[in-house]
Simulated assay, not measured.
Amino acid sequence: MTTTELSRLEDFQNKGVLKLSNVIDIEKVVDVRTHFWHEINRKFGINIDEPSTWFSNANNPVGNTRAKRLNGMGSIMRDLKVSGKLDEIEHAIQPAIDHVFGAHAWRPLDLWYSLLSFPGSETVWNVPHQSWHNDEPTVVGDAEPWSLFVFVFLDDVSADMGATTVVSGSHRRIASLAKTLGTSNNEALINAFESVNSGLFENPKDVTLLPMDQVLEPLIQEDPWFQALVNEGSPDKRIQRFIEEGSTHNSIEQKVVPLTGAAGDIIVFDPRCLHTFSANISNLPRQVLRLDFRRQ
């Protein structure tokens, strides 16, 4: 492993998020994007170049004022995976993961996700204060997550297009909480994540972990920065406090990071980090896919 790769790994371990630029050739991205929108047009009658078609069917879009998604994208992603249309970009992602995390350490799951979102009704972008959560339990004594989320940019995505926002370093804050608040006898929760944690534990009953729904409230109670994060405030002040300045608590740096990038970039994300979706105030859809990797 080179010095650069070690630096990237340490950066990921500290922040829980790592951007890798130009991982996928733009020609391959364009090809996948073409197939992606062909299937959306076939199923929903939506044309990316015709905004009037985006919400012509009231049964399709879901969401709130921040951004709107489409029901039924799972079948489109399964069809694209089975057809082999995603193979080339998947083959481009694997070496990038191997270079940073070690060869054969992580392997992709079969299921891809669409994170496509359309503009909502909000007109000013702000650091979101609602729906902060994490997607995986935190196991005491285990520095690594069970899975990695890899965000794949099919087009240039800026914060105002509804970028997922992450509290970098929050997985380390949660790991500290888990040491005092974690519990055992969580077999049902462990089994719910069998696709990514099977084979990791000899005896699941002995595993001490902190469930996802027991994370946010303790952080709010012990840290005024998190208390302010989940309360409304003016965009200028929130952007300055949470994105530009951040905070440090017990030597752990934390900052809100919008997951933005250019077509062909990927972002590797620790699902134990707190995150939420932001408002798409642009006039463009956010075109992002997600591929999950599991530990070997």
Score class of each variant (00 low, 15 high):
L6P: 02
R8L: 14
F12P: 01
F12T: 04
V17R: 03
L18H: 04
S21L: 09
I24D: 00
I26H: 09
I26K: 12
N47W: 06
E50N: 15
S52W: 03
G63R: 03
N64D: 15
K68V: 06
N71I: 15
G74N: 08
G74C: 08
D87E: 13
I89S: 04
P95K: 09
A96Q: 05
I97M: 11
D98W: 11
F101E: 00
H104S: 14
H104M: 10
A105D: 09
L111P: 01
L115N: 13
P119W: 08
E122P: 01
V124I: 15
W125K: 04
Q130S: 14
P137A: 07
V140N: 01
V140H: 02
D155K: 07
S158P: 00
M161N: 11
V166K: 00
G169M: 01
R172M: 09
S176K: 15
S184T: 13
N191L: 11
F193A: 11
S195K: 11
L210G: 03
P211E: 00
D213E: 11
V215G: 02
V215W: 03
L219G: 03
D223N: 14
W225S: 06
W225V: 05
F226G: 04
Q227T: 14
N231H: 14
D236G: 10
H249T: 11
N250G: 06
Q254E: 13
G261K: 01
A263V: 05
L274Y: 05
F277L: 10
L284G: 07
R286I: 06
L291D: 03
Q296E: 12
